[in-house]
Design a protein around this nucleic acid. Structure first.
Lengths: 196, 196
DNA sequence: CCACTGTATGGCACTCAGTGCCACAATAGT
DNA sequence: ACTATTGTGGCACTGAGTGCCATACAGTGG
């Protein structure tokens, strides 16, 4: 194994092709609809073979989702790094408020989100990703020293926080992208603040 | 169109075959795993053709999910039937606490739930169903006369309630089916009670 | 009991996502 | 330049899901 580092020609072209596939795929999906676009179409548009498409993305759905795994790990780290005596809900609020724009960006803003929201297959995939994220966050919360959360409470709070983000995203869509997401997040988290 | 009513021979055999397919499918899924069981296998076990399977269930996943649509409509009706001056959260708590056992039963109790929880494709489908349910409940909440909810708040509360049920189901799984689900629901809803 | 009508069934062929395999081209390290 | 890796395209295959058609069969009218 010769380390690839960040800047081999190989790695660079790989990233470029990946980005182009994602770009073209989004365009085609918006143009003809997700179901009416085949992997063949996307691959052809980018000038690669169908077979190679699946070497860049494990499934057709994944072409729309940036690397959530990476994101999830960073968020979990942020949670572990918070002051140990902080209230779990406040911790979730702070960290997720901070990360929301990046979670969002990973979903291609309005165009992508709208596509995801109106395509059952994509919504399903989104939920799957969200599940992974929830598990990691919940685990990170349990590892925090002070508030001593049991698995159920940690899971419950994380799920509620996820529900809040989800509701915010939908409201933002309803407002055609004009709503202030940060304010909505604050509102949602305040409303749901757990009883002591 | 000669009305089929509830008891034609046709309707009865249809229901019987449907039930048998569901039954056999669950058995096969548990035995060999979901992915390693083909629709062909299920159909053959029930003595029908692959083609006919898809006349009973729209997809392979659906063989595990009872008619959620029906359930959703009934739940929505229950919500509309609650006293008009009741707090929205209290309303969700009461109705969902009441329906949870039936939602649960539709998922085949421990065996089915565990299968769903450990199979990504099935979790995805579950989420899809839950989405439908959420939309209907949220709409029903908005139609209630008194608390005058805006779409965002209704959606947020419904999503939070869904998150609570989800967390309860996972805790119940963690406890190998020994936990008191009703008590967990009460606990979860109390903890998340919205600030006035 | 029989003919008629609508529906359920099975078989077939097709599309499309996803995978394993192999031959071949391009690249990185020496 | 030589060689070990790694990416690529082509091909064949599985498995889900659908459209179509010929046939079998329940439900109704005579």
């Amino acid at each position: 194994m010769t380390r690839a580092e960040t800047t081999g020609l190989r790695e660079r072209t790989r990233r470029a092709v990946r980005a182009e596939l994602a770009e073209l795929a989004l365009g085609l999906f918006v143009e003809r609809g997700y179901e009416r676009t085949t992997v063949e179409d996307i691959a052809a548009a980018a000038g690669v073979s169908r077979r190679s498409f699946f070497r860049y993305f494990p499934t057709k759905e994944d072409v729309l989702f940036g690397d959530v795994d990476e994101l999830a790990e960073q968020i979990a780290e942020d949670i572990r790094a918070r002051p140990g005596d902080e209230d779990a809900w406040a911790c979730l609020h702070a960290v997720l408020r901070d990360w929301e724009p990046r979670i969002h960006a990973a979903q291609r803003e309005l165009t992508g989100l709208r596509l995801i929201e109106t395509t059952p297959a994509l919504r399903a995939r989104l939920h799957q990703k969200r599940d992974e994220l929830r598990d990691r966050i919940s685990a990170a919360l349990c590892e925090r020293p002070s508030p001593l959360l049991d698995a159920f409470t940690a899971d419950l709070l994380t799920a509620a926080a996820g529900a809040a983000l989800d509701a915010v995203a939908r409201e933002w869509l309803r407002s055609d992208g004009t709503a202030d997401r940060a304010a909505l997040i604050d509102h949602a988290f305040t409303l749901l603040t757990p009883r002591p």
